[in-house]
Design a protein around this nucleic acid. Structure first.
Length: 949
RNA sequence: GCCGGGAUGGCGGAAUUGGUAGACGCGCCGGACUCAAAAUCCGGUGCUGGUAACAGUGUGAGGGUUCGAGUCCCUCUCCCGGCACCA
């Protein structure tokens, strides 16, 4: 069956039946290849990408929201005249497939592929304008062979290297656990106490790109500020100093230095001890002869590797009995082992200045270590001086008043009484501004920067340190001791070492028929997989059995979509047409890791020469300008929209032993009082009360998920899409509401009904000559028509603005406003074709086009049914007729002292004097003035007049 | 703990730059239609007082800047996201 002309002959359905019209519309898009993106076009390109889903098997509301937002953007840009590409694919490797394999005894591959099929069907029923010819699946060799290829290139360039690193080790299941699988320090399945274990892993030198990743954030004007801030903080560039503390030969037994990094060298004179991580060389050495220390180190190694746990646990430490000497004053400082010092960060050792660091302070108080104040507020230092001495400190910026001196005298007295209590300490520890050194010998009186420079210089002169820039960002560990991931293309040869798999032997294919036991990787138990020969010497060798972090796949899929079917590389020349992505849409939870890794990969691929004739050496930093000149590009995503979560109410009953039994909202009836406030809830099946819980992220564990498929089956995809767009702006959390969904459906039905009952008049109107861009169109209208026409365009102007700033909920509102105004016109307007139909025909065409990105099926159908055209997809986007917006009279607010007291209609070009006169003689203003003259009258043109008394 | 974000009627949210707080929708109340109900349509709806006109009050809490603050500044509370092996 075909739609369009054939269908137009059939009488229009009276009732809105989404099931029928959605199937017809989707079939038509499929047949006409409506969403096939052209690799060559006269139109400007628009690459709109939504984060691809992990194929869990069932579409959830978060997906629906993500892809609806992307589809609205895609369809809007298409109508604006862009060559749009909106692809879709599957982030198919990952832990859940292995968990499912354990639970259901299905191989991860089979489970994944059947999930993909199920989810593709669901996605298609949403009516998304996707170019399915570009679909990709990351667990297929034709995809992952190219990341193996990239791996070997980066390995050869030294951008991937091997080192040992800590993982969560489950000693009962003898397996490595993900952070997610560690619950309260125990393995999720075995319940065993998890410990840290050091194993060799491959790392990517993302730190080599830290400077560029940080600097290029400035180029990302289309990114939310908060995401850039988070990334910037994550990279964490800091300026500091390396300090070497020479070993005390007597206690340590050898010579050497303890290396630390500090951002506060100005406080070096206040260092009273040093602390090292449990894995530090000095710790190991001290523990050799001290069983108690060895026990403490073992304790530190218990528990997982998650940073949040490290940061919140109780600070514990133990003295090693070893000493180092202070590099400037030569004092002996004790060496402590502390559980809050991380081996993987910095040097695995810190200098402790308890007077000026919160953690050191807490630790020193706990273990009675000395606290030496070396920084003081300027004012207090000054207050301690005589009046004449003070004069030399006072300047225009920092005048020392007697009041300030008194205030700080009080503080000083408080200090004597409360010395080093946490409250008082808060008063002076942190900020670097307006502070100077005290108790620091020759550095006394220096401010932060002066002391920083002087102490660094002295350290350097003595060979005990130097200034250093440091990044918080660590190199990216990419090895996973798991099965369901991309095999790392390395061969271990006893003679030749670690050899990358040669290109002609790629891909290293992951065997799909395996048994998952939950203990260790199946690959390590498959000789047919790991037994191989060395590509270099030909001798027997062993293939690497670790797989890659799944972030690897998601870091370059955006590029692969540009080159579907490419068998010659990761991408081909089509990438240069489509990249960078114009609009990326996805959850805020990816603000740091995924988005940082994808930015990193973009730079790697650029530097490997995939995006043009660039030949950057990886050892030099590339500026944005250089890259732009070379026709390449630095950043993968020009604009970023971070969408909020979908949340829903929760309901539960207390089960045995206080265990909560969560009840799905669909099974609950809510009781309200006369005002509509909820007072209770009952389970429909037994009529007994349930407890109303909080409103939380839709999840299996809280049983508050709403299945999108049920909504689509019941109301249609257009209703689901409309509700999701209408209920909240894209970046905010969206609260699910069944009543709201019904409201969305009611609205679409009203649109349908309006079309049905006005079809005749609109048809008649089409036969008359008219052109909305024609100036005479506006002039030909009578006042009534012009007013409704103006109303349409006021709403349209706001809607077009809202679309540009990605606030789609108010675009949905605008559609409702237009329909309301048109319905109103039907009731109150003068009957007859000449007075109503022109305005209605024009207004309804605006409504259909404005609504079409949100609810594409109903609008496509009505566009044809009412004879506006064959295909709304190729209709031009409605633009505002500015001439229609001009009004002769405007309404001004009248305020007295900023408080609204009335409204006034005035000519739009009334002058200020007239307006002021009108305001003071306005009855309620006159009354409030009570005969007094106004002190001041503020006129805000076009808005208000404020009379100040 | 650290980094980032949020809080506006009974509910979701609107208010472009400091200038009419509550658009639009849900819910609730009243009315029409109906034998009745549902659906639909019309009207009302921040809170307090008042028959009403109107007045007071109101954007998480407390303070500040301003003729004027939901919006800017300071302090605080609660909630959410991320923290490097969930994706």
């Amino acid at each position: 069956m075909s739609i369009g002309r054939t269908n137009a002959k059939i009488k229009m359905q009276q009732d809105y039946k989404p099931k029928n019209i959605e199937a017809v519309a989707q079939e038509s898009w499929k047949r006409k290849l409506s969403f096939r993106a052209e690799d060559q076009s006269d139109k400007p390109k628009y690459y709109c990408l939504s984060m691809f889903p992990y194929p869990s098997g069932k579409l959830h509301m978060g997906h629906v929201r993500n892809y609806t937002i992307g589809d609205v953007l895609s369809r809007y840009h298409r109508m604006k005249g862009f060559n749009v590409m909106q692809p879709m694919g599957w982030d198919a490797f990952g832990l859940p497939a292995e968990n499912a394999a354990l639970a259901n005894n299905v191989p991860p591959a089979a489970w994944t592929y059947s999930n993909i099929d199920a989810m593709r069907t669901q996605l298609q029923s949403l009516g998304l304008g996707i170019d399915w010819s570009r679909e990709l699946t990351t667990c297929k060799p034709d995809y992952y062979r190219w990341e193996q290829w990239l791996f070997t290139r980066l390995f050869q360039k030294g951008l991937i290297y091997k080192k040992t690193s800590s993982v969560n080790w489950d000693p009962v299941d003898n397996t490595v656990l993900a952070n997610e699988q560690v619950i309260n320090g125990c393995g999720w399945r075995s319940g065993a106490l998890v410990e840290k274990r050091d194993i060799p892993m491959y790392f990517m030198r993302i730190t080599q790109y830290a400077e560029e990743l940080l600097a290029d954030l400035d180029q990302l004007e289309g990114w939310p500020e908060q995401v850039k801030t988070m990334q910037s903080n994550w990279i964490g560039k800091s300026y500091g100093c390396e300090v070497y503390f020479p070993y005390d030969a007597e206690s340590v037994g050898t010579t050497g230095v303890l290396k630390v990094y500090t951002t506060r060298p100005d406080t070096l004179m206040g260092a009273t001890y040093v602390a090292v991580a449990a894995e530090h060389l000095l710790a190991t050495q001290a523990a050799a002869s001290n069983p108690k220390l060895a026990e403490f180190i073992a304790e530190c190694k218990r528990g997982g590797t998650a940073e949040a746990d490290m940061a919140t646990m109780e600070k514990k430490g133990m003295s090693t009995g070893l000493f180092v000497t202070h590099p400037i004053n030569g004092e002996l400082l004790p060496v402590w082992i502390a559980n809050y010092v991380l081996m993987g960060y910095g040097e695995g050792a810190v200098m402790a200045v308890p007077a000026h660091d919160e953690r050191d302070f807490e630790f020193a108080k706990k273990y009675n270590l000395p606290i030496k104040q070396v920084i003081e507020r300027d004012e207090i230092v000054i207050a301690k001086k005589t009046k004449s001495e003070r004069a030399t400190f006072a300047d225009d910026q920092n005048e020392v008043t007697d009041q300030a001196v008194d205030h700080h005298r009080d503080l000083m007295e408080a200090a004597l009484v409360n010395k080093f209590t946490a409250d008082y300490w808060q008063e002076w520890y942190g900020e670097k501004e307006l502070r100077m050194c005290v108790n620091s010998g020759k550095y006394d009186g220096l401010d932060f920067q002066q002391a920083f420079d002087a102490i660094s210089a002295d350290l350097q002169a003595k060979g005990f340190g130097q200034k250093r820039t440091q990044f918080r960002l660590r190199d990216w560990g990419i090895s996973r001791q798991r099965y369901w991931g991309c095999p790392i293309p390395i061969i271990h040869c006893a003679q030749c070492g670690d050899i990358p798999v040669p290109d002609d032997q790629l891909p290293v294919i992951l065997p799909e028929q395996v048994t998952i036991t939950g203990a260790g990787s199946p690959l390590a138990k498959m000789p047919e997989f790991y037994e191989t020969s060395c590509p270099q010497c030909g001798g027997a060798a062993k293939r690497e059995t670790d797989t890659m972090d799944t972030f690897f796949e998601s870091s370059w899929y955006y590029a692969r979509y540009t080159s579907p079917g490419c068998t010659t590389g990761m991408v081909d020349e089509r990438a240069q047409y489509w990249l960078p992505v114009d609009q990326y849409v996805g959850g805020i939870e990816h603000a740091i890791l995924h988005l940082l890794y994808a930015r990193f990969f973009n730079k790697l691929m650029r530097d490997v020469g995939l995006f043009g004739e660039t030949t950057f050496s990886t050892s030099t930093q590339v500026t944005g300008e250089q890259a732009l000149q070379s026709k390449s590009f630095n950043e993968p995503f020009t604009n970023l929209l971070t969408q909020g979560m979908v949340i829903a109410p929760t309901f539960f009953r207390e089960g045995a032993a206080g265990k909560k039994l969560w009840i799905n909202p669909a099974e609950v009836d809510i009781e309200t009082d006369s005002r509509g406030r909820p007072v209770g809830a009952k389970l429909r099946s037994d009529g007994q009360p349930v407890v109303i819980g909080g409103t939380e992220k839709m999840s299996k564990s809280k049983n508050n998920g709403v299945d999108p498929q049920i909504i689509i089956d019941q109301y249609g995809a257009d209703t689901a899409r409309f509700f999701i767009i209408f209920a909240a702006p894209p970046e905010q959390t969206l609260e699910w509401s069944d009543a709201g969904v019904e409201g969305a459906f009611r609205f679409l039905r009203r649109v349908w009904n309006f079309a049905y009952s006005n079809k005749k008049e609109i048809d008649v109107c089409h036969s008359r000559s008219k052109n909305e861009s024609d100036e005479s169109f506006l002039k030909s209208m009578n006042d009534e028509q012009r007013e409704i026409y103006r109303e349409m365009h006021v709403v349209l102007k706001q809607a077009n603005f809202d679309l540009q700033r990605l606030q789609f909920n108010t675009v949905a509102s605008a559609c409702m406003k237009i329909l309301k105004a048109l319905e109103q016109q039907m009731v109150t307007g003068t009957p007859g074709v000449t007075t109503k139909s022109i305005a209605i025909t024009n207004g309804f065409s605006i409504l259909l086009r404005l609504l079409s990105p949100i609810a594409p099926h109903i609008t496509q159908t009505l566009w044809q049914e009412l004879g506006y055209g064959d295909d709304i997809l190729s209709a031009p986007w409605p633009e505002v007729d500015e001439a229609a917006l001009i009004q002769d009279e405007i309404e001004l607010m009248i305020q007295v002292n900023g408080k609204l007291r009335g409204k006034l209609r005035v000519a739009k070009d009334a002058d200020q004097t007239t307006l002021k006169q009108l305001a003071v003689t306005y009855p309620s203003v006159e009354k409030l003035l009570a005969g007094q003259a106004a002190k001041k009258i503020i006129v805000v043109p076009g808005r208000l007049i404020n009379v100040v008394t």
